[in-house]
Design a protein around this nucleic acid. Structure first.
Lengths: 236, 236
DNA sequence: CGTGTGATTGACGCCTGTCAACGTCTGTGG
DNA sequence: CCACAGACGTTGACAGGCGTCAATCACACG
């Protein structure tokens, strides 16, 4: 098996990511190709991997860390589309639809990211229909999530959306041993997910705390009463 | 070439849809297979093609007519995801992600629709990587549109969203010789696209009319001042 | 210790949802 | 032909959710 001379932090053929990502449909040979043609890089917190509006020539597989994907709207206000974490692929949408990046990717927690050139991805997609189907499935799942979120944001109040986002963050990133959310966001970022003002987030988090649904310690949010949060989030 | 004995309104190999849909990547042979295995049907206005939450076993290619795709939210309130028209494929998302339908498909204007069994679609996807890539591209484009709409709905006011939707409808369905939108929706449906109350739509349409940006004749909406609408829609 | 970022709180008011009443139009049935 | 029901459109009143502005506090960092 060939090895690249440059900094290779993770070898694709035994990368733990495979078991949870679309790449589990690749053959050993294809994984070797992928391993040879990809480039690994560590991005520090705050780094921008690519900017909205830029042309990207490949996609990125997240080995670890957390990436924030956001669009910049009116007056520079950011709207967070989603977060990418271990095993997620980002940038493939723009690459495949031959479009400019529709969001900026910024590192929230130091990340090891593998860059996969567009050519490589296209070759794999053309030669391995199972892989192509898996990618298709992935984008369809994301599409379904996006559609659901559109309905939520259009019909629910800010309070309901905030409760929902806390639950989504819980499901996506999990809780630590003390029931704290495993992701720490600023109040502003929380507002930028659900589309509301920072002050509203603060007031509502305070309300949730008074109701004993959550506990707050700086940016750490401890989830106490999941059922009540679900009740609010689902407009029961 | 084989022909089916049953009602076949359109033959795939010379269907005009091919030039504008993903099926233009199929070979003649594949088109013949598709033609043989699909089923055509006319749906009258008001018919529901499939319901949100149901398991669908194939996808639908719209030959003509207009289909409304909507999710049902809290208290039965509908939220319109998008409209499908000539050349559009619907239902593929649920089919490919092996999920329940995430929206209801209801006929807005009488439509001729071809049903493509899931098996057929999967076979074509597996054997023709160009076609699979085209489908992938399609879903990526829809995903991009969904993401944009999320940001819009999260950051813009109702007034801005209404102006934007009028422009989107113009681009999607075009104008007739009198500059009227080629799609007629109820006030309630307009509200269900942008996530607002019927009364708000009425008041804002009235305002747009007073500003001489549009003219209203019942459900017919005439677009007069595109630039001003764009100005509002884009928050200039 | 100054600077900057983020969190918090209060005041204020507008946008927009809700409720209610009424008008308009169309189709149906007697 | 008329009465009636039902769907849709319109208008007004009203309240409250939430955005905006401003001031202050907390904390980290060079």
């Amino acid at each position: 098996m060939k090895k690249k001379s440059q900094t290779t932090f993770a070898s694709c053929d035994d990368c733990v990511i495979n078991s949870i990502s679309v790449f589990n449909k690749l053959t050993i040979d294809e994984l070797n190709i992928l391993n040879y043609e990809k480039t690994c890089q560590i991005f520090k917190k705050g780094t921008i991997i690519y900017n909205e509006g830029s042309r990207i020539s490949g996609c990125y597989c997240i080995h670890n860390g957390i990436i924030k994907l956001y669009k910049t709207g009116f007056e520079g206000r950011e709207h967070i589309i989603r977060f990418a974490k271990k095993g997620d692929i980002i940038g493939y949408r723009s690459l495949l639809s031959n479009d400019f990046a529709c969001h900026t990717a910024k590192v929230l927690e130091d990340a090891l990211v593998c860059y996969i050139p567009g050519e490589t991805l296209f070759r794999l997609l053309e030669n391995n229909s199972k892989f192509a189907l898996e990618m298709l499935k992935l984008s369809c799942i994301e599409l379904g999530e996006a559609n659901t979120f559109i309905t939520d944001i259009a019909q629910k109040t800010v309070r309901e959306r905030l409760a929902e986002v806390l639950l989504i963050l819980k499901d996506t990133f999990g809780l630590d041993e003390e029931q704290n959310l495993q992701i720490t966001l600023t109040r502003e970022e929380l507002g930028n997910i659900i589309g509301t003002a920072t002050e509203s987030v603060i007031r509502l988090l305070g309300e949730f705390k008074d109701n004993r649904w959550i506990e707050i310690n700086g940016r750490k949010i401890k989830i106490i009463d999941i059922k009540s949060l679900q009740k609010i989030a689902n407009k029961k």
